[in-house]
Amino acid sequence: MAEKIVLEIARYAPEKDEKPSFQSFEVPFRKEWVVLDALNHIKDKVDGSLTYRWSCRMGVCGSCGMMVNGEPKLTCATFLSSYGNGATVRVEPLRYFPVIRDLVTALSDFLVKLQSVKPWLIRKDEPPLSAGEFLQTPEQLDIYKQFSMCINCTLCYAACPVVGLEPTFVGPAALALAQRYNMDNRDQGAEERLGLLAHPEGIWGCTFVGECTRVCPKHVDPAGAIQQYKLKAALEWVKGFILPRGSEDQSKEVRP
């Protein structure tokens, strides 16, 4: 039997289609091929109008995320062989995102959310470069390192039902990146970010489904990051409750 696999690909041409439909393509089944290789085969040899994003083909640029058989996947890291010779594999654009065309989703909203968490090092002081590096021990690096591994592939958004139900939810990747900076000992912006994110569309929007962490190709654990963030927010709230005008300095004063 010839080695074949069938790809059912969601097609959507905004100029003429009301909504997406599926088109089937038969492609050779090769053990070293990933889903992206099959898409490239179709685009090169069969239908040049098939539209999708890809770039590095080594799982680090974050371009080629799609739904493969209903699961958010990086198609450059998803082997055809995991579905077996003769299988039918369904490829769709990442769920919960607006579709621009075929397998291409609109990312502009994600970029706005990313920017909204202030994902940069915030400092109150800026010592001159000649003062050398900010010290950071390997242990301090290890505390936030996991959350710095996000490649912005947005698979976690496609896995998160809250994103689907509440499109204004800041979402897993952006919140995890906020926490990445919060936990960096060089950063002094945690308070500022907490003010921005301790609201129902921020950390409290998360209902701990945990799917973001399961689908993350880089083991970032956004769900864990958000729960840690919630705990910190809750503790801050309690602190504020016990010490109404409570900053840490005031708390040292003895009140009758």
Binding site: Y12, P14, E15, D17, K19, P20, G70, R95, Y96, P98, V99, I100, R101, A106, S108, L111, V112, P161, G164, L165, T207, V209, G210, E211, R214
Partner: peptide
């Protein structure tokens, strides 16, 4: 960011089904 909204094409927004939570046992558990 430069928006290109004046010309940008019709985006398709898939409606979220009422029964989305039946899509996987993990969602059902949630």
């Amino acid at each position: 960011v430069q928006p290109s909204t004046e010309f940008h094409p019709r985006w398709y927004r898939a409606p979220v089904s009422t029964y989305w939570w039946m899509g996987s046992w993990r969602y059902s558990l949630f």
